[in-house]
Write a protein that binds this DNA or RNA. Sequence first.
DNA 1: CGATGCACCTCGTATTACAAGGGTGCATCG
DNA 2: CGATGCACCCTTGTAATACGAGGTGCATCG
Lengths: 108, 108
Amino acid sequence: MVDKEMMKGSIDLVLLSLISQRDLYGYEITRILKHLSDDTYEMSEGTLYSALKRLERKGWIESYWYDTEIGRRKYYRLTEKGGEELKRKQENWKMVESLVQKSSEELT
Amino acid sequence: MVDKEMMKGSIDLVLLSLISQRDLYGYEITRILKHLSDDTYEMSEGTLYSALKRLERKGWIESYWYDTEIGRRKYYRLTEKGGEELKRKQENWKMVESLVQKSSEELT
DNA sequence: CGATGCACCTCGTATTACAAGGGTGCATCG
DNA sequence: CGATGCACCCTTGTAATACGAGGTGCATCG
């Protein structure tokens, strides 16, 4: 559908954004992304879980197990540090956004 | 200044955008990016030249030498294939843009 | 029973972006 | 004249990234 490497470089930002809104579990995240992209993008689980691990290792998210009748789920929640990082990444994103835009507009 | 890894994933798009407007040489590109970012971002030359090599290897840009009184410069120009790739990457970018936005807004 | 969906995970690999280095030649300054 | 700085190009090594392919277990549906 779309470029498989579409999200390269933006995965952490997107994940932190999503988790900042409410606690989510892995599989749920893939469903949300699929939905938000109108079924054009499906994040591979290999990508997702290693990204979540990375975010946790860096202290930006924390996880906890939650058992439902239909099985166990590992939920992730944003930490304070993760909130700060999200802010940084958002500003960063704005910068890149403006560069991408300018690079296709003006050339001084 | 900004995150050193700021451009991760967007370098190719930015470079193709810039070169699509007019032929450019390497050093000039670093100057333009610095200017467009209001001096907050300076692409390391290692990054730039290996990116240019990559783009050339993929057939998206072509290079030619040009001699001025003050020395030789290696200019890069967009190929037809590069034009198509640029278009693809731009659509891709819009997708990611919308995901980044949505991920910090709604959660269905 | 087999397939499908939910839910998690690991491993190996190619690619990427970077820093750190190296090189040339010209101009300017002391 | 020598040093410094700028303009310009390049290579190498490394850490991190994103991915596909594979694996587990359970429940449900046909």
